[in-house]
Amino acid sequence: MSREEHDIVLELLPAYALDALDEEEKGRVERHLRVCPRCQAELRLLKETAHLLAYTVPLYDPPFHLRERIRLLVATGRPSHDVSPRGGLKGVVRTAVWARPTPLTALVLILSLITLGLFSWNIHLKGELASLRDETVDAHELGEVMLEYVESPDNYELHPIQATDASFPAHGIILSDRLRRRMILLAKGLPRLENDEAAYMVWIQDERGHAIPIRAFHCDEQGRAVLLFTLPKEPQDIVEIGVSIAQGNPPMTPVRPVLDGKLR
């Protein structure tokens, strides 16, 4: 380790701590760090300084369901009966086989539903569920996904979802982005919420049978909803998807399933 090399690396360390070096400079710093305890100590202080910048960001509350979803995700090997829809998704899923929509009909359906969704953007939220305001679909984000779907349909999959009960005409479609773990749920004909029912909740079920809550939402007065959400798992690990009506605040207690569909 030469003195000259040490001095050069010492000058590069602040930028290295910020992850702002080119690959070549980064390699040079890392080679020197292996043999220089003094630079290692300096880097530790610089990294602590750099990451203090995180404290300057304006603060936003994460969506309320994220806390519970993280808890469920880490509960490996533990059945999540406490929050699963009654009896899990299995048992409420119909096994009827839907004809797979052609890309053209699917696109027409999606665009029609999005048009309806755009007009009904201002979803009615109950006062006690004010925290759900962030769940409103971002039109720009939705449009971006739709454009990508049109441009690169091979990166997406379409899955129909249907009512779990013939007494209401609910149906919809799931557009799954295989690369970025995103999904769009388009639904119509959702049954009205009863007095003690708080919201609709999207659930997924993985191959081990764990049901994981994804997102609570409301529909408009005609029972229509457009929802964009990020999956906690890779789409190929998800077996089924469903929508239940849930109680509670936050609405985590499922009381009746309304939509379901198989993703495989």
């Binding site: 936003y60 994460p62 969506p63 979803r69 993280i70 971002d138 984000e141 773990r181 964009l228 990020t230």
Partner: peptide, 10 residues
Amino acid sequence: DHQLAEEVTQ
């Protein structure tokens, strides 16, 4: 992007 921020947090 709130969706991506949620993904990162998770």
